[in-house]
């Protein structure tokens, strides 16, 4: 039976390097923030949240989903009295909600471990410093990539989750880890075609939301570099 992952699970899972048993270099520094961003995308796809015309995020339902990392973000949103844009929400998870950000990322990893596709090993560096090693099941990673190839590199309709994941892989610079130069060009071309297709408005809002997440990650990265 094939496993069904959420967008945050697929992103974190593909972020694991099979040789290093750590997170991939480009993605490593902001992995927790991207995890939170991917949770927002999952909530958008599940229609738990929505973004209004002013670009503010609002909850459309407050019932728990039963998925720990999604519910942690829902709780933060329901406790807030202020409406914020997606970009501001992502920044707030960097500046003032660091522990929740870490917990969200950890919960995603735990979920992957529970599903048996990631194994976690604790080790020490120089016999003193604790380190964590995560090993991903390569075949399951390959299946996700094959799905992207089958949907985006072939003619036909595409699934919301595959499109969202592909935009996230593009923004986290992870496409190069899984696709050849030719495939990458084809993928980017297809994503642009989908975005420009007037009848596929949902692609536009997914792309816009992910661009906002990325803009926020870049902004906090630049702020961290100058302080």
């Amino acid at each position: 039976m094939n496993k069904q992952f959420t967008v945050p699970e697929e992103l974190v899972f593909l972020g694991l390097d099979e040789k290093m048993h750590r997170f991939k270099l480009d993605y490593r520094s902001y992995k927790e923030l991207y995890s939170v961003g991917a949770v927002f995308i999952e909530l958008l796809l599940r229609k738990v949240i929505s973004i209004n015309e002013e670009g503010k995020v609002y909850l459309t339902q407050v019932d728990p989903t039963g998925i720990s990392y999604l519910d942690q973000v829902i709780e933060v949103l329901s406790d807030s009295s202020k409406e914020k844009s997606l970009k501001k929400w992502i920044s707030s998870f960097y500046y003032s909600k660091g522990s929740i950000r870490k917990n969200v990322h950890r919960s995603i990893l735990e979920s992957l471990c529970e599903q048996g596709v990631v194994t976690h090993k604790e080790d020490t560096f120089l016999f003193m410093f604790p380190t964590h090693k995560y090993e991903a099941v390569k075949d399951e990673q390959a299946r996700i990539i094959e799905r992207i190839r089958a949907e985006l590199l072939e003619e036909g309709s595409v699934d919301e989750q595959t499109v969202a994941l592909s935009f996230l892989l593009k923004e986290t610079k992870m496409l190069k880890e899984y696709f050849s130069n030719y495939e990458r060009d084809q993928l980017k071309k297809r994503l642009k075609e989908l975005k420009d297709n007037e009848s596929l408005q949902w692609v536009k809002w997914i792309e816009k939301a992910i661009a906002e997440i990325n803009a926020s990650v870049v902004a906090v990265g630049a702020a961290a570099a100058t302080t």
Partner: peptide, 14 residues
């Protein structure tokens, strides 16, 4: 004429 990875994916998906 269908790419290898697509056939593999269809197979895995049953």
């Amino acid at each position: 004429g269908v790419r290898y990875s697509t056939l593999k994916f269809y197979t895995e998906e049953g």
